[in-house]
Amino acid sequence: MLRLPRFEFRVAGSASEAVAILAGEGPGTRLVAGGTDLWPNMKRRHQSARTVVSLMSIPELQGIVGNGGGEGELRIGATTCLADVAASATVRERYPALARAVDAISSPPLRNMGTLGGNLCLDTRCTYYNQTEEWRRSIDYCMKEAGSVCWVAPSSPRCWAHSASDSAPMLAALGGRVKLVSAAGERVLPVAELFANDGIDYLEKAADELLTEVLLPPESDSRHSKSSFWKLRRRGSIDFAVLSVAAWVRTDAAGVVEEARIYLGAVASAPLAATSAAAALLGEPLGEESIAEAARRARKAATPMDNTDFQVQWRGRMVELYTAAALREIAGLDPGVRAPRHLTVLSS
């Protein structure tokens, strides 16, 4: 049986207590919420901690708060479990693509444990890295942990582990923000700015900062503002994304696209802002041609690496098809590719 190494386990009763422990203990301290990312990583010995601080007994980090069913900002506590996010009537109604994205994370029991904050902070992944200590010893480790080479791109100076969070690209596309709290104070950051495109230093969150909540914009999905999420993975459950496409488009009364955001998951070390692709949609109604152009641009922007499932060149091609599918769904067109079994029907 794979087992955890020893560590000191502390349970924080409040956010301020958690950040105080972080400030006091310094490096070697890690936060844990659902444990679905940290515990496997520690069992495989590619993450370690002297002290682990549980956030699961902090009431203020839990739950979904919004002003009723109408407009206004929706706040989701960082340790709200993924199953509750996906099941929330408010989320399903106002941000159906977010419900779909969260519903597509891993498997049902994992979503009963894993949290939204945890999924945002999910460690980057790579088949050279998410392996046991013994396995990694047999490749002399890698740049991300204990080694010096990135085996995905051996001449590269950086680590190419990929971002595998499904909620991150979706929240970024929706224009969500996160609140970070530390002993020194707090700040609110767009989700898109929470990440850095580096397999090792993939979070802009400082080590002493605690992600306390996710803030969703006041604007819900509506006739003029629509979102979609498409995820590609091998199986109908359990698997991480090998590609995800999150898109959000706002049109004016005449149907002309005013604003659009497209974020790609699993093709970079951070949710990848396909800005040029989104720009291709602006100023005209969402239609076949602009979508095709946006999809081509998205493919150009993506850099899938050979460090997860499926053949890498094929994954690159899927970026174009899945980007088109997500946008076509928003436009009310046939998606052009067969929808994977695990995608829930968007209610709006």
Binding site: S107, R235, G236, S237, I238, D239, D309, R341, H342
Partner: peptide, 11 residues
């Protein structure tokens, strides 16, 4: 069991 793919209930 994650990366050696075996079909799930949904597959």
């Amino acid at each position: 069991l994650l990366e050696y793919k075996s079909p799930t209930f949904r597959d």
